[in-house]
Structures are given as C-alpha cells and as structure tokens.
C-alpha cells in the first residue's frame, strides 16, 4: 500500500480555510457551527479530542486492573466454591483440552484489551510527535482498534450466559463476579476513548513529512 495513491500535496479543507463535516463530508465556511446537511457540530479540529482520549483511556486501564484481580465468576459445586479470574478461566479451559475456546477467551479478554491500550496511547502520542510509522499505517491501526473494541465484550456475555444457564436446580451454580463489571467498564471506556479520537489529527501530523 505504501506506493499506491497518496499524492504528495493534497489540499485539506482546513488548508483551504474551510471546514469539512466528519459525518457527511459537506464542506462549509469556517463561520458555520452546524452542518447544513446532517446537523452535526462542525469543528476545524476537535481541540479537546486528545484530552478526552487520554482521560477515557486512563479510566479504562484503571478499571482493567480489578478486572484481572477479582473473580469473573464463581462456580459452586457440591458444597465448595471455586472462583475464577480471567486468566484462571483460560487455564481451566486448557486443562479441559479446549484450546480453541481458551484461545478465543485469551485473545478477547487479554490480548485485545492490552493491545488496544497500547495502540490508542501510541496514536495519541504520535499526533504531536514525529514517528517512522506512516500516516497510512497509523490510520489502519486506528481502524483496527475501532473495529475490534467491541469484541472484548465476549467474556462478559459468557459469564451472563453461564450464570443464567447453570442454576440451583443443578449440581453446580455459577454466579457472576465483580470483575465482570470492571471488565465491561474497561471495554466501554476504551471504546469511548477510540470514538473521541479525531481521526484527522493522524493526517495533520504527517502533513509536512517529506515522504509517506
């Protein structure tokens, strides 16, 4: 993708002294406040964007810590209760030989959240700092982060399904643990962090790069 397209000198709406709508693409004079086509609020660049991104990202990381320390679910079977954290659940699945599912849970609950924290922090940092990674690649990274965020919710759904299914009338009971809440919050916060990111900032930073 490096050498295709991306003509070196592309004019942005901002360069032309205009504002483009991030929802519908309509171009407006800089004095316009809301888009005449779709009604979205117009901003040359969302100046507070990075602050919002950092605030939500830090909140997401903070609530991710108890999500790993406290039990995600508790299984009560024949008088004794076992509590499982996220990692504990993955290990147990591997003991049962279901490596595929253990892989899904591991990726959705640990790899994706952590990779997402790093990716969002990286994208936010590189808006103001110059890096080797081209704007193209950072844009792709942003799209991946945006797409993948919701999939981390899998484990919360699994806990809910298991708890509704395995109830008192069986030998075992499964109840959700407090980690389910903090995990769900962590996913939501990082999703908001990604959503508050003004994509256009990625491209502004690379404006005067000599070569893509």
């Amino acid at each position: 993708m490096e050498n295709t397209g991306s003509p070196p000198h592309i004019l942005t709406a901002r360069d032309a002294g205009l504002i483009g709508c991030t929802q519908c693409g309509k171009v407006h004079l800089p004095t316009t406040a809301t888009c005449s086509r779709c009604g979205a609020t117009l901003q040359m660049r969302d100046k507070a964007s990075l602050q919002k991104v950092w605030a939500w990202l830090i909140a997401g990381i903070i609530v991710y810590i108890p999500a790993n320390l406290y039990p995600m679910l508790a299984t009560a079977s024949l008088g004794h209760t076992t509590e499982n954290t996220i990692v504990g659940g993955v290990i147990e699945l591997m003991h049962h030989g279901s490596y595929g599912v253990a892989g899904i849970v591991f990726v959705a609950s640990i790899v994706i959240p952590v990779a997402k924290f790093i990716a969002i922090a990286f994208l936010a940092l590189t808006v103001t700092r110059r890096v080797r990674m081209s704007a193209h690649h950072r844009h792709t990274l942003f799209e991946v982060v945006e797409f993948i965020g919701r999939w981390s919710m899998i484990d919360v759904f699994v806990v809910a399904i298991l708890s509704s299914l395995v109830r008192l009338d069986f030998a075992a009971t499964i109840t959700p643990g407090i980690a389910a809440i903090s995990f769900a919050l962590s996913v939501a916060f990082t999703m908001i962090a990604a959503l508050s990111f003004d994509e256009r900032l990625i491209w502004d930073a690379s404006e005067d790069e000599p070569r893509e």
Binding site: R14, L18, G20, C21, C24, V27, W203
Partner: peptide, 11 residues
C-alpha cells in the same frame, strides 16, 4: 461541488 474526506479532511 466539493466534499471533504470524513477521515482525513482531504478536499
């Protein structure tokens, strides 16, 4: 007669 790219602001 113009459109701004919603992602990168290209005119």
């Amino acid at each position: 007669r113009m459109i701004a790219c919603p992602a990168c602001d290209a005119l």
